[in-house]
Amino acid sequence: MILYTARRLVGAAGILLVICALTFAVFYLMPADPAQGACGKACSPERIAQIRATLGLDQPLPTQFAAYLGGIVAGRTYGSLECGFPCLGFSFQTNQPVWDALTSRLPTSVSIAAGAALLWLLVGCTAGVVAALRRGTVWDRAAMIAALGGVSLPIYLTALLSQYVLVVQLGWLPYPREVALTDDPVGWFQSMLMPWCTLAMLYAGVYARITRSEVLENLGRDYVRTARAKGLPEVTVLRRHALRPALMPVVTIFGMDLGALLGGALITESVYGLPGVGKLAADAINSADQPVILGVTLFAAAFVVLANVAVDLVYALLDPRVRTV
Protein backbone atom coordinates (compact mmCIF):
# COMPACT_ATOMS: atom_id res chain seq x y z
CA MET A 1 0.00 0.00 0.00
CA ILE A 2 2.83 2.40 0.89
CA LEU A 3 4.70 1.33 -2.18
CA TYR A 4 1.58 1.82 -4.22
CA THR A 5 1.06 5.32 -2.83
CA ALA A 6 4.64 6.23 -3.63
CA ARG A 7 4.32 4.89 -7.16
CA ARG A 8 1.12 6.82 -7.72
CA LEU A 9 2.70 10.05 -6.48
CA VAL A 10 5.71 9.61 -8.72
CA GLY A 11 3.36 8.97 -11.62
CA ALA A 12 1.38 12.08 -10.76
CA ALA A 13 4.55 14.15 -10.66
CA GLY A 14 5.46 12.83 -14.11
CA ILE A 15 2.09 13.81 -15.53
CA LEU A 16 2.38 17.28 -14.01
CA LEU A 17 5.80 17.73 -15.53
CA VAL A 18 4.43 16.91 -18.98
CA ILE A 19 1.50 19.29 -18.52
CA CYS A 20 3.89 21.94 -17.30
CA ALA A 21 6.10 21.55 -20.36
CA LEU A 22 3.13 21.66 -22.73
CA THR A 23 1.55 24.77 -21.25
CA PHE A 24 4.92 26.45 -21.02
CA ALA A 25 5.58 25.73 -24.67
CA VAL A 26 2.15 26.95 -25.72
CA PHE A 27 2.32 30.23 -23.84
CA TYR A 28 5.89 31.18 -24.59
CA LEU A 29 5.74 30.24 -28.26
CA MET A 30 2.74 32.46 -28.84
CA PRO A 31 3.33 35.38 -31.18
CA ALA A 32 2.69 37.89 -28.37
CA ASP A 33 6.00 38.84 -26.88
CA PRO A 34 5.96 38.38 -23.11
CA ALA A 35 8.44 41.20 -22.69
CA GLN A 36 6.08 43.47 -24.53
CA GLY A 37 3.29 42.33 -22.26
CA ALA A 38 5.36 42.93 -19.17
CA CYS A 39 6.43 46.36 -20.23
CA GLY A 40 3.08 47.78 -21.23
CA LYS A 41 2.03 49.87 -24.25
CA ALA A 42 4.54 52.64 -24.77
CA CYS A 43 7.85 51.03 -24.27
CA SER A 44 11.26 51.73 -25.67
CA PRO A 45 13.25 48.94 -27.38
CA GLU A 46 15.99 49.31 -24.75
CA ARG A 47 13.50 48.78 -21.96
CA ILE A 48 12.18 45.67 -23.74
CA ALA A 49 15.65 44.26 -24.13
CA GLN A 50 16.29 44.90 -20.47
CA ILE A 51 13.09 43.11 -19.48
CA ARG A 52 13.99 40.23 -21.74
CA ALA A 53 17.21 39.86 -19.88
CA THR A 54 15.62 40.01 -16.42
CA LEU A 55 12.90 37.53 -17.33
CA GLY A 56 15.51 35.32 -18.97
CA LEU A 57 13.67 35.50 -22.28
CA ASP A 58 16.93 35.79 -24.19
CA GLN A 59 17.91 32.34 -23.05
CA PRO A 60 17.07 29.23 -25.14
CA LEU A 61 13.63 27.76 -24.36
CA PRO A 62 14.85 24.65 -22.46
CA THR A 63 16.92 26.86 -20.17
CA GLN A 64 13.90 29.06 -19.54
CA PHE A 65 11.82 26.04 -18.74
CA ALA A 66 14.44 24.70 -16.36
CA ALA A 67 14.57 28.05 -14.62
CA TYR A 68 10.79 28.08 -14.36
CA LEU A 69 10.73 24.59 -12.80
CA GLY A 70 13.58 25.57 -10.51
CA GLY A 71 11.53 28.55 -9.38
CA ILE A 72 8.60 26.34 -8.48
CA VAL A 73 10.61 24.03 -6.31
CA ALA A 74 13.15 26.45 -4.86
CA GLY A 75 12.30 30.04 -5.74
CA ARG A 76 14.39 32.25 -8.03
CA THR A 77 15.36 35.86 -8.64
CA TYR A 78 14.54 38.10 -11.58
CA GLY A 79 17.42 40.50 -11.71
CA SER A 80 17.25 42.08 -8.29
CA LEU A 81 13.68 40.95 -7.67
CA GLU A 82 13.37 38.10 -5.19
CA CYS A 83 10.64 35.57 -5.94
CA GLY A 84 10.26 33.12 -3.07
CA PHE A 85 9.30 29.45 -3.17
CA PRO A 86 7.04 28.40 -4.81
CA CYS A 87 7.70 30.90 -7.56
CA LEU A 88 5.35 31.04 -10.52
CA GLY A 89 6.64 34.42 -11.68
CA PHE A 90 5.05 37.87 -11.40
CA SER A 91 1.89 39.15 -12.93
CA PHE A 92 2.57 41.56 -15.78
CA GLN A 93 -0.48 43.53 -14.80
CA THR A 94 -0.20 43.92 -11.06
CA ASN A 95 3.39 42.88 -10.47
CA GLN A 96 2.04 40.71 -7.69
CA PRO A 97 3.68 37.28 -7.37
CA VAL A 98 1.42 34.80 -9.19
CA TRP A 99 1.47 32.44 -6.21
CA ASP A 100 0.15 35.16 -3.92
CA ALA A 101 -2.55 36.08 -6.39
CA LEU A 102 -3.61 32.46 -6.55
CA THR A 103 -3.63 31.86 -2.82
CA SER A 104 -5.55 35.03 -2.10
CA ARG A 105 -8.28 34.00 -4.54
CA LEU A 106 -8.31 30.35 -3.49
CA PRO A 107 -10.57 30.54 -0.42
CA THR A 108 -13.49 31.78 -2.50
CA SER A 109 -13.13 29.05 -5.11
CA VAL A 110 -12.59 26.35 -2.53
CA SER A 111 -15.61 27.53 -0.56
CA ILE A 112 -17.78 27.28 -3.63
CA ALA A 113 -16.38 23.94 -4.78
CA ALA A 114 -16.27 22.15 -1.44
CA GLY A 115 -19.67 23.36 -0.32
CA ALA A 116 -21.26 22.44 -3.60
CA ALA A 117 -19.62 19.01 -3.59
CA LEU A 118 -20.87 18.33 -0.09
CA LEU A 119 -24.31 19.51 -1.02
CA TRP A 120 -24.61 17.44 -4.17
CA LEU A 121 -23.25 14.30 -2.52
CA LEU A 122 -25.74 14.70 0.28
CA VAL A 123 -28.74 15.53 -1.87
CA GLY A 124 -27.84 13.27 -4.79
CA CYS A 125 -27.05 10.15 -2.79
CA THR A 126 -30.01 10.56 -0.49
CA ALA A 127 -32.37 11.03 -3.39
CA GLY A 128 -30.85 8.02 -5.14
CA VAL A 129 -31.19 5.80 -2.08
CA VAL A 130 -34.77 6.88 -1.46
CA ALA A 131 -35.66 6.35 -5.10
CA ALA A 132 -34.13 2.87 -5.06
CA LEU A 133 -35.79 1.78 -1.84
CA ARG A 134 -39.16 3.23 -2.91
CA ARG A 135 -38.73 1.95 -6.40
CA GLY A 136 -41.67 2.51 -8.70
CA THR A 137 -43.45 4.88 -6.29
CA VAL A 138 -44.14 8.60 -6.68
CA TRP A 139 -40.96 9.32 -4.71
CA ASP A 140 -38.87 7.43 -7.19
CA ARG A 141 -40.41 9.17 -10.16
CA ALA A 142 -40.27 12.62 -8.59
CA ALA A 143 -36.61 12.22 -7.69
CA MET A 144 -35.72 11.04 -11.15
CA ILE A 145 -37.57 13.85 -12.89
CA ALA A 146 -35.91 16.42 -10.63
CA ALA A 147 -32.58 14.79 -11.39
CA LEU A 148 -33.16 15.05 -15.10
CA GLY A 149 -34.10 18.71 -14.71
CA GLY A 150 -30.98 19.48 -12.68
CA VAL A 151 -28.74 17.85 -15.24
CA SER A 152 -30.22 19.57 -18.23
CA LEU A 153 -30.28 23.19 -16.99
CA PRO A 154 -27.11 25.16 -17.77
CA ILE A 155 -25.37 26.88 -14.85
CA TYR A 156 -25.75 30.43 -16.09
CA LEU A 157 -29.48 30.00 -16.54
CA THR A 158 -30.10 28.62 -13.05
CA ALA A 159 -27.71 31.19 -11.61
CA LEU A 160 -29.43 34.18 -13.20
CA LEU A 161 -32.89 32.84 -12.50
CA SER A 162 -32.22 32.14 -8.84
CA GLN A 163 -30.49 35.46 -8.44
CA TYR A 164 -33.46 37.23 -9.96
CA VAL A 165 -36.05 35.40 -7.86
CA LEU A 166 -34.32 35.06 -4.51
CA VAL A 167 -32.38 38.31 -4.39
CA VAL A 168 -34.19 40.78 -6.56
CA GLN A 169 -37.80 39.69 -6.20
CA LEU A 170 -38.01 38.12 -2.78
CA GLY A 171 -35.00 39.65 -1.14
CA TRP A 172 -34.35 36.52 0.89
CA LEU A 173 -30.66 36.51 0.19
CA PRO A 174 -28.08 39.25 -0.30
CA TYR A 175 -26.14 39.56 -3.53
CA PRO A 176 -23.28 37.09 -3.33
CA ARG A 177 -20.11 38.93 -2.39
CA GLU A 178 -16.75 38.05 -1.04
CA VAL A 179 -16.97 37.34 2.67
CA ALA A 180 -14.29 35.52 4.65
CA LEU A 181 -15.64 32.63 6.68
CA THR A 182 -13.59 33.76 9.67
CA ASP A 183 -14.95 37.32 9.58
CA ASP A 184 -18.65 36.72 9.23
CA PRO A 185 -19.81 33.10 9.14
CA VAL A 186 -23.46 34.00 8.58
CA GLY A 187 -22.69 36.41 5.78
CA TRP A 188 -20.36 33.85 4.25
CA PHE A 189 -23.05 31.23 4.34
CA GLN A 190 -25.67 33.55 2.85
CA SER A 191 -23.33 34.57 0.07
CA MET A 192 -22.31 31.05 -0.74
CA LEU A 193 -25.72 29.44 -0.60
CA MET A 194 -26.76 30.40 -4.08
CA PRO A 195 -23.50 29.50 -5.83
CA TRP A 196 -23.54 26.17 -3.98
CA CYS A 197 -27.04 25.31 -5.03
CA THR A 198 -26.44 26.33 -8.61
CA LEU A 199 -23.37 24.18 -8.97
CA ALA A 200 -24.71 21.28 -6.91
CA MET A 201 -27.88 21.11 -8.97
CA LEU A 202 -25.85 20.20 -12.01
CA TYR A 203 -24.29 17.19 -10.31
CA ALA A 204 -26.84 16.07 -7.76
CA GLY A 205 -29.01 14.68 -10.55
CA VAL A 206 -26.19 12.59 -11.96
CA TYR A 207 -25.36 11.26 -8.51
CA ALA A 208 -28.96 10.46 -7.74
CA ARG A 209 -29.20 8.35 -10.86
CA ILE A 210 -25.93 6.52 -10.24
CA THR A 211 -26.76 5.88 -6.61
CA ARG A 212 -30.20 4.62 -7.48
CA SER A 213 -28.99 2.10 -10.01
CA GLU A 214 -26.13 0.95 -7.78
CA VAL A 215 -28.42 0.42 -4.82
CA LEU A 216 -30.92 -1.45 -6.96
CA GLU A 217 -28.20 -3.67 -8.31
CA ASN A 218 -26.90 -4.37 -4.83
CA LEU A 219 -30.31 -5.18 -3.47
CA GLY A 220 -30.37 -8.12 -5.85
CA ARG A 221 -27.00 -9.44 -4.72
CA ASP A 222 -26.69 -12.85 -3.12
CA TYR A 223 -25.08 -11.44 0.00
CA VAL A 224 -28.11 -9.28 0.66
CA ARG A 225 -30.18 -12.45 0.57
CA THR A 226 -27.70 -14.04 2.98
CA ALA A 227 -28.07 -11.07 5.30
CA ARG A 228 -31.83 -11.57 5.30
CA ALA A 229 -31.40 -15.31 5.82
CA LYS A 230 -29.41 -14.51 8.95
CA GLY A 231 -32.44 -12.74 10.33
CA LEU A 232 -30.84 -9.29 10.41
CA PRO A 233 -33.28 -6.41 10.83
CA GLU A 234 -34.17 -4.94 7.45
CA VAL A 235 -32.56 -1.61 8.35
CA THR A 236 -29.23 -3.32 8.99
CA VAL A 237 -29.56 -5.36 5.82
CA LEU A 238 -29.99 -2.18 3.81
CA ARG A 239 -27.41 -0.06 5.55
CA ARG A 240 -24.63 -2.61 5.83
CA HIS A 241 -25.16 -4.90 2.92
CA ALA A 242 -26.87 -2.86 0.25
CA LEU A 243 -25.80 0.76 0.75
CA ARG A 244 -22.16 0.53 1.63
CA PRO A 245 -21.14 -1.50 -1.42
CA ALA A 246 -23.33 0.72 -3.58
CA LEU A 247 -21.38 3.80 -2.59
CA MET A 248 -18.09 2.47 -3.95
CA PRO A 249 -18.76 3.44 -7.56
CA VAL A 250 -19.97 6.83 -6.36
CA VAL A 251 -16.54 7.42 -4.84
CA THR A 252 -14.90 6.58 -8.14
CA ILE A 253 -17.10 8.91 -10.10
CA PHE A 254 -16.67 11.64 -7.53
CA GLY A 255 -12.94 11.39 -8.11
CA MET A 256 -13.39 11.89 -11.81
CA ASP A 257 -15.72 14.80 -11.21
CA LEU A 258 -13.31 16.68 -8.95
CA GLY A 259 -11.58 18.05 -12.01
CA ALA A 260 -14.80 19.15 -13.61
CA LEU A 261 -15.82 20.57 -10.26
CA LEU A 262 -13.07 23.14 -10.48
CA GLY A 263 -14.27 24.15 -13.91
CA GLY A 264 -17.81 24.38 -12.59
CA ALA A 265 -16.65 26.57 -9.71
CA LEU A 266 -14.91 28.90 -12.14
CA ILE A 267 -18.04 29.36 -14.23
CA THR A 268 -20.19 29.80 -11.14
CA GLU A 269 -17.97 32.45 -9.60
CA SER A 270 -17.77 34.43 -12.79
CA VAL A 271 -21.57 34.34 -13.13
CA TYR A 272 -21.96 35.67 -9.60
CA GLY A 273 -19.02 38.00 -9.94
CA LEU A 274 -17.15 36.50 -7.01
CA PRO A 275 -13.39 37.12 -7.03
CA GLY A 276 -12.13 33.54 -7.13
CA VAL A 277 -9.48 31.78 -9.15
CA GLY A 278 -11.85 31.74 -12.10
CA LYS A 279 -12.07 35.50 -12.15
CA LEU A 280 -8.30 35.67 -11.87
CA ALA A 281 -7.97 33.42 -14.91
CA ALA A 282 -10.56 35.33 -16.91
CA ASP A 283 -8.86 38.65 -16.21
CA ALA A 284 -5.45 37.21 -17.04
CA ILE A 285 -6.66 35.89 -20.37
CA ASN A 286 -8.19 39.25 -21.26
CA SER A 287 -4.95 41.05 -20.60
CA ALA A 288 -2.64 38.32 -21.95
CA ASP A 289 -0.97 38.08 -18.56
CA GLN A 290 1.04 34.98 -19.39
CA PRO A 291 2.60 34.18 -16.02
CA VAL A 292 -0.82 34.22 -14.40
CA ILE A 293 -2.45 32.08 -17.08
CA LEU A 294 0.38 29.59 -16.82
CA GLY A 295 0.15 29.56 -13.04
CA VAL A 296 -3.60 28.99 -12.99
CA THR A 297 -3.36 26.22 -15.57
CA LEU A 298 -0.67 24.43 -13.62
CA PHE A 299 -2.54 24.84 -10.40
CA ALA A 300 -5.71 23.40 -11.90
CA ALA A 301 -3.80 20.48 -13.40
CA ALA A 302 -2.12 19.72 -10.10
CA PHE A 303 -5.47 19.81 -8.37
CA VAL A 304 -7.05 17.34 -10.79
CA VAL A 305 -4.13 14.93 -10.82
CA LEU A 306 -3.69 14.88 -7.05
CA ALA A 307 -7.43 14.55 -6.48
CA ASN A 308 -7.43 11.48 -8.68
CA VAL A 309 -4.56 9.92 -6.77
CA ALA A 310 -6.37 10.65 -3.53
CA VAL A 311 -9.55 9.01 -4.75
CA ASP A 312 -7.67 5.90 -5.90
CA LEU A 313 -6.12 5.64 -2.46
CA VAL A 314 -9.48 6.06 -0.77
CA TYR A 315 -10.85 3.39 -3.03
CA ALA A 316 -8.07 1.00 -2.08
CA LEU A 317 -8.79 1.72 1.57
CA LEU A 318 -12.49 1.07 1.20
CA ASP A 319 -12.38 -2.10 -0.88
CA PRO A 320 -10.53 -4.96 0.78
CA ARG A 321 -10.20 -6.73 -2.54
CA VAL A 322 -8.14 -3.91 -3.99
CA ARG A 323 -6.07 -3.60 -0.87
CA THR A 324 -4.66 -7.13 -0.88
CA VAL A 325 -3.08 -7.30 -4.32
Binding site: R221, D222, T226, R228, A229, K230, G231, R240, P245
Partner: peptide, 24 residues
Protein backbone atom coordinates in the same frame (compact mmCIF):
# COMPACT_ATOMS: atom_id res chain seq x y z
CA UNK B 1 -40.30 -14.72 10.57
CA UNK B 2 -37.17 -12.67 10.99
CA UNK B 3 -36.81 -13.91 14.56
CA UNK B 4 -36.94 -17.52 13.37
CA UNK B 5 -34.64 -17.02 10.42
CA UNK B 6 -31.01 -17.48 11.28
CA UNK B 7 -31.93 -18.55 14.79
CA UNK B 8 -34.06 -21.68 14.56
CA UNK B 9 -33.67 -22.25 10.87
CA UNK B 10 -30.64 -21.27 8.84
CA UNK B 11 -29.56 -21.54 5.25
CA UNK B 12 -26.42 -22.29 3.28
CA UNK B 13 -26.35 -21.34 -0.39
CA UNK B 14 -24.61 -22.70 -3.44
CA UNK B 15 -22.11 -20.02 -4.31
CA UNK B 16 -20.21 -19.03 -1.17
CA UNK B 17 -18.28 -16.25 -2.88
CA UNK B 18 -21.27 -14.24 -4.01
CA UNK B 19 -23.14 -15.01 -0.79
CA UNK B 20 -20.54 -13.48 1.48
CA UNK B 21 -20.24 -9.72 1.56
CA UNK B 22 -16.81 -8.78 0.18
CA UNK B 23 -16.54 -5.66 2.34
CA UNK B 24 -16.56 -7.29 5.76
Amino acid sequence: MRALRGDRMAMVFQDPLSCLNPYY
